[in-house]
Structures are given as C-alpha cells and as structure tokens.
Nucleic acid binder design. Structure first.
Length: 622
DNA sequence: GTAGGGTTAG
C-alpha cells in the first residue's frame, strides 16, 4: 500500500466526526445497494430522503465502489431530482471528475466538467476548484489533467476570461501547459473574432515558455492576415523564426490570401502582385511547396485580375504535378468558368470531379446554378436544383437568392415570388440580397412604385437596408426626377452608417443629367474623390452623355480623354453617346474615327450607333 | 490542430 493510500485510509478512519457518523452508515448502505446493482431499490429503500452533501461525497469517494457505479449513482440523482431535495454540489462534481480522470474516462469527465462550467451556481473560481481537487487527490496526479480540461472547456464555451484565469493559475503553480490546449483556446478566440485577446494570449504563451509550434503561429498569422495586418503577421513569422519555428504552407497561404484580398480593397493589382511574388519567393527559398490551397488561391487571383490563361495554366500545372485537386479547387474553377460564360467547360469540370469520386458541395452547385441563371437559363437552373436535392443537398439562402435574381432579371417576378414561399416553408429568411433582386426585377418591369414600397418597408420586416438597397431607392427617385427625395435617402444612409458608393453617386449624377443640371452633376465627381471613391466608367459615361445632350461636345471629348488617364476603359454606351453627340453637330469625320476606335477596342456597336453615323452624313434628315 | 470555394446594383 502506498503512503498516500495509507494516509487516506487513516484519515477516513480517524477523522470521522461523531456527529457525522450516521452519514457513514447511510453512505455504506448506498454503496452496498450500488454494488448489487440495485439502483431502483434506492428509491424503495428510502435511502434518498437522508441524503446530504457529506453522504454523497462519501459514496463518490469510496474506493471500493467502481467509478462506473459512481457515475450511475450520480446520473440517477440528476434524473430523480424530485426524490431528493439535495442537488450535487461542486465538490461532488469534482470528486466524480477526478475519479473519471483516474479511470481514464476522459469523455465522461469532460461532460461532467462541462456541466459545472455552464451552471451559474456551480461555476467557481479556479482556486476553489483546485483546492477541492487537492482535497481528494493527495498525489496531485489528477490536478494538472483536470485544470487542463477545465481550460479547454472554458475555451469551448467562450468563457475566455475564466479560461485565462485557469491559464494564470496553472502558470503560477508550476503546472505544465499543454500546447494543444492552448491551440483549443486560440481557435476558440479566432471563432469568436477576439483578435486582441488572441494576440495577447499568444504573447503570453511565448513568455510563459509554452512550446510554440507552427500550428499556433499559423492561427495568429491567419487572424492578423484576415484583419489585413500583413505587416504584423510577417513580423511575427520573423520573430518566431528566431525561436526555431518555421512557417509552413498553411502560414504562407494565409499571407497569400491577405495579399489577394488587399487588392479588392484598394491597392492596385501591381501592388498585390508584388506582395504575392514576394511570398512565393519566400516559399521557394524555404523549400515549401505549393499545395492544392496555394494553387486555388493563385488561380482565383489570376481569374480575378482577368489573366484567364495564367489561371488555366496553373490549374493544368497542379493536375500534372499530381496534386490531388479537391472539391474546393474544382468549385473555384467551375465558378470562374461560369462567371466567364464558359458553361460548357464548367460542366465538363463538374463531370470530371464526380468521375474522380469527388462530391460536389452546395457551393459547387451554387456556382453552376449561378452560371446558368446569369445566362438566363432558368430551366437548367431548376434541373440543377432538383439534381442537388436528389443528392440530399438542400437549397440555402445563397442559392435561393441566385435563383430569385435569375428570375427577376428575366422579368419573371411571379416565379421569384413563388420561390419566396418555398423559402418561407424551408425557414429561409429573406435577406437584403433578396430584396435587392426583387426591387430590381420590379424596376425592370417598370413597376417602380412597388419596388419603392418594398425598399421602404423591408426594415419593418426585419431586414436592414444596406448601401445597395439605398442606392436602388436613390436610383428610383432620380429616374422619377425627384432629386430632393434621392438626397434625403442619401442623408438617411449617412445616418445609418451605410456609406454611399460610386454606384450611389452615379445614380444621382444620372438624375442631374436627366434634368440638364450639368454643373451639379460635374460637382459630384469632385465629391467622389473627397470621399476617397473613384469615378468609374458609368460616372464618366453619364456625364459625357449629359454634355453631349446639351451640345457641349468639346467638354465631352475632354472628359473622354480624362478616362484613359484614370485607366477607365470606355464601353459601348460611352462611345455611342459621343458618336451620337458628334453626329448631331455634323462632325462626322470625328464620329467615324471614334467608331473605328471602338471596333479596334473589340466592342460591338448597337443599332443606335449606326443611325447616329448615318444621321451625321445627312444632318438635315437627322 | 493551421490555409483555399458559391449570391446582390446603373
């Protein structure tokens, strides 16, 4: 017998308070009953009426009673709350958890400890728990395991401050911390978007000597990348490099993703490309090979900046290198082919992936459905939805919105509204995307009043308008000629913290142009730049169109010249406005020159271009 | 254990 066991036995024998002696008797009775597996007779023998915390503690800590019996007894008590007024206290839970941990029944221990943590009456400071553990566990073998488990459970329940208390307690009491448990905490913080605490905690991990792995570092790097702080992420990698922690492909992929996302926000493609090249260079020099996620990121990037051949080349290269292309990568490539209108290729890829035994996901179907919807092929979309549902994948909000938008764009508003019923039945709540599509659909059918009503009442239905729906409203008012109403929408947007975009201002510009108020329209370009927004092709086209209408053709040509300075590529509408403006003034030579330029640029003129050009040759007939 | 995929406006 070990010293500890002897000590424990002696303690049990000699420390019995005479006043508590009856408890010993009851406890022994209960243990005997439990040993005979007569749980039910606990009720009939009326043993439960005499229960108190000491009896429970004595039963649970009785070494002669198997841990399984303790567990049964405990659960029996929980199930039969009515029979005994006594509710297990923290000490009872702690004893049971200690016993479960000793018996290596970790899953059961975790469930028990979790019920302590989620119970406001049981949850206690870590020092209280630790003292109770020490009372039971003289050898202090269990304590580190229990504290570690407590730490993880607090993390899982997003009780971050409590988790930190456990961390500090362990650190201060010289209890070794498991790096994997710290990972659980880091991941929980990441899920909760608690960046500040995550970065601070990582710092504490480093300071308190927890073994830092590339896993932990990658989580922090990823979070820093996601908030756009690539600089900090890179510094961290460098710092950890000094401690022997080497970044791996996951770490680099997070950096790549950040560089790619940054280009969406503001930086030009060149800036982003330089960042991407730098990361790729680091990977190369550190001998870190690209994996399927690296390729997926790069493929997505090249498609996004219009380098289609490069994207396709990378996809081929990935296949040839024997990297297993997974459903994620296929979905990306399928999506881009759909967006580019290459539906045939998209379906080929879809077949290819299923032939390889890969299971298309809801996103894969989402990409294809989007592709056919954008192509106006609503029957094909319906077939895909059915196929997807046959495979046990249900439509979700994104796919519903895609279909609704597809119907609306075709003017099939009734079909879209029918889908709304389906959504309701499936418990899919319409969101701001849904309202945006429907209102556009209504506008397309010249049912502006209905669209307006929908946009004005969506908030009552629990959907907050955003910049897009506010813009739709601005657009409707401007088209109606009610600029002051449009401006009051703009003010409401600002009040609600929704920032107008270039599109919003374009709608307003169009409103002014329609009224021939060119001074005010022109002023908005300056306002745009004050707001750190960039005028786009639509901004210029509207104003060029406006100047042409009032006969300021030279002003229009000046603006046209400005476009190329800003890297804006005129579209058919821009050319058409200018050609028709020049034609009306009889400047047919310049008009034909622009026509050639437009053809050169690969644009397809529409009928109005020709009638303008013909008109320019016969000014009197025009 | 850490990374990558589908929807909205003129």
């Amino acid at each position: 017998m070990s010293t500890q066991k002897v000590f424990k036995t002696l303690r049990q024998v000699f420390s019995v308070n005479p006043a508590l002696a009856p408890n010993q008797g009851i406890a022994q009775n209960i243990c005997a009953t439990l040993k005979n597996s007569e749980l039910k007779s606990l009720k009939s023998k009326n043993l439960l009426s005499d229960l108190n915390s000491d009896v429970i503690h004595l039963v649970l800590s009785n070494p002669d009673l198997k841990v399984q019996s303790c567990l049964y007894f405990f659960k029996f008590l929980q199930r039969n709350r009515r029979l005994c007024s006594y509710k297990p206290d923290l000490q009872a839970y702690v004893i049971l958890v200690c016993r479960l941990l000793t018996a290596r029944k970790f899953a059961e221990a975790k469930i028990m400890l979790n019920s302590v943590v989620v119970d406001n009456n049981l949850r206690s400071p870590v020092s209280v728990v630790a003292n109770l553990v020490d009372e039971y566990d003289y050898g202090k073998r269990i304590s580190p395991k229990l504290l570690d488990m407590l730490f993880r459970i607090y993390a899982d329940n997003e009780l971050f401050n409590e988790a930190l208390e456990v961390f500090d307690y362990m650190k201060n009491n010289g209890v070794e911390l498991d790096e994997r448990s710290c990972m659980v905490f880091l991941r929980a913080l990441k899920r909760a978007n608690n960046v500040e605490m995550l970065v601070n905690f990582f710092r504490q991990m480093v300071d308190s000597g927890v073994q830092i792995t590339v896993y932990a570092m990658s989580v922090v790097v990823d979070v820093l990348c996601k908030i756009g702080d690539v600089r900090k992420a890179r510094n961290l990698i460098d710092e950890m490099g000094g401690k022997g922690v080497k970044p791996n492909v996951f770490t680099y992929n997070s950096l790549l993703d950040a560089c790619i996302r940054k280009h969406d926000m503001m930086d030009g493609n060149e800036v982003a490309m330089a960042g991407i090249d730098e990361i790729l260079g680091l990977m190369e020099s550190n001998g870190v090979s690209h994996n399927v996620a690296t390729y997926t990121l790069l493929i997505e990037w090249f498609y996004a900046i219009g380098k289609i051949e490069e994207a396709e080349r990378l996809f081929k290269e990935m296949c040839e290198k024997g990297i297993k292309v997974d459903a994620y990568a296929y979905t990306t490539v399928i999506n881009w082919n759909c967006r580019l209108g290459k539906l045939k290729r998209a379906f080929e890829l879809f077949d290819e992936m299923t032939e390889k035994g890969l299971t298309p996901t809801v996103q894969t179907y989402g990409a294809l459905i989007n592709g056919v919807c954008k192509g106006g092929q609503m029957e094909a979309a319906e077939i895909l939805v059915k196929e997807m549902q046959d495979k046990g994948i249900e439509i979700n909000l994104v796919i519903s919105n895609t279909l609704v938008d597809g119907y609306c764009k075709k003017g099939m508003i009734d079909e879209a509204l029918k889908l709304q019923d389906v959504m309701e039945k499936k418990g899919i709540a319409a969101d701001v995307f849904f309202y945006s599509s429907i209102s556009n659909g209504l506008c397309k059918l010249k049912r502006n009043d209905e669209a307006k009503k929908l946009l004005l009442t969506m908030e009552e239905k629990g959907v907050a308008p955003n910049a897009v729906t506010f813009t739709a409203l601005v657009d409707i008012y401007c088209k109606e000629g009610d600029i002051s109403a449009a401006k009051s929408v703009l003010r409401e947007m600002e009040r609600k913290g929704e920032h107008p975009s270039t599109v919003t201002y374009n709608a307003l510009i169009d409103g002014y142009v329609r009224k021939g108020r060119m001074k005010e329209a022109r002023k908005i370009i300056d306002e745009l730049e004050c707001m750190k927004l960039m005028p786009d092709v639509y901004t210029y086209t509207s104003i060029i169109h406006g100047e042409c209408i009032i006969g300021n053709i030279d002003e229009a040509l000046k603006l046209f010249g400005e476009m190329s300075n800003k890297g804006l590529i005129p579209n058919v509408v821009t050319y058409t406005a200018l050609i028709s403006g020049l034609s009306k003034k009889g400047r047919s030579e310049e008009a034909f020159k622009l026509y050639d330029e437009m053809i050169e640029a690969g644009l397809t003129p529409d009928d109005s271009v020709y009638s303008s050009l013909v008109g320019s040759l016969h000014p009197t007939a025009a």
